[in-house]
Design a protein around this nucleic acid. Structure first.
Lengths: 196, 196
DNA sequence: GTCTATATCGGGATAGAC
DNA sequence: GTCTATCCCGATATAGAC
């Protein structure tokens, strides 16, 4: 059986929200991209906010799946972190044009003071928690969350400047720098290992 | 004499664009905030794009002034960089709610594929060039631009996650980490000092 | 320069036929 | 489930009086 219309709408909206922004995406755009009428569109999603909730849920679900795959395919926890670090290069063309899907959506919803903001931040929290687990397993249980936030900040900084300057060399250099930093984590003593 | 209406419009729009985003800011909002009629508003700025150009020009000008002040008030080039690094803490309350003015505007204009995007990126370029000068003066002429981009990426990463998680401790930790990294710059040999 | 009035368009959202 | 037709509102933008 073909993909149900509801799911097709979510998939299209996920992409259109990413490319054009939430506020700039109209029902007419979305219905046209899905290939259905606006009336039918409203049959599946009464309001735009309702659709946004479904899109964020879909992102939460696909992110969970992706992180699970990474965990399955990569035995070494530090290599898993490196796989995360690499996505700013893997998705570079999209990022150059539209930025990071998570960062740009949370930023837009913050400005709109939108009720879904917290929900969107949960996608960030998924990455944060997964990175925290890997860094704890890599020998940094004491400061794993701080380090996870640092890696997350790296990805957001690189994504934002990649969108601004569109410089592939910059992205590569920052990834190399981050990987070198990750190497130091296991050799260096963790900050409060002597304080405990 | 009082501030001319045109300038008052630019000042208000600068702030409203920052807080609500460019696309979500209507002429009615802006005219109301300035305290004039919509008709009068259009007398000063025919289109929203025209107003955006004026706002970005104002930001370029105020950024130049701010960087000049920092240069004047701070003798040591590395201390100047530290002053830049500190702004994510200084402006934390605004950043928590609205993100970085430069990063969020360029991201939005990228998604809108807006002609003013390049103009908005010029604000980033101003910071980049200023940071490059300071880092070159601090003893890193070979890789000053790379390092400048790294510092810029730091600020954007911290700003984006600050908007998402609103965690002052995280911001403080990242600033401390960046300052520690800046310390290593002068002691460490620069990458291609032996290659030349 | 500033206003009111108005034109025009596109947005979200609903009703109801098929 | 899907469509057409329609409503209502708010948005940009213009015209013209004062």
């Amino acid at each position: 059986m073909p993909t149900p219309t509801r799911q097709r709408i979510i998939d299209v909206a996920n992409r259109v929200f990413y490319e054009n922004g939430y506020g700039a995406s109209s029902f007419a755009d979305l219905a046209g991209a899905v290939g259905i009428s606006r009336g039918n569109f409203h049959h599946h999603f009464r309001t735009k906010d309702e659709l946004l909730t479904a899109v964020v849920d879909a992102r939460l679900s696909s992110t969970r799946a992706m992180l699970g795959t990474w965990s399955d395919q990569t035995p070494d926890p530090l290599d898993r972190v490196r796989r995360f670090v690499e996505i700013v290069a893997t998705n570079r063309e999209d990022i150059d044009r539209y930025g990071c899907p998570v960062g740009t959506l949370t930023a837009e919803l913050a400005k709109l003071d939108h009720p879904e903001r917290a929900h969107a931040v949960a996608v960030f929290a998924l990455f944060r928690e997964w990175l925290r687990e890997q860094l704890a397993a890599a020998g940094r249980p004491q400061d794993a969350d701080e380090l996870a936030m640092h890696v997350l900040a790296f990805s957001q900084g690189v994504a934002t400047l990649s969108t601004a300057f569109r410089d592939a060399d910059f992205v590569r250099r920052e990834i190399d720098r981050m990987n070198a930093w990750l190497d130091t984590l296991v050799t260096d003593p963790s900050p409060d290992s002597e304080a405990t």
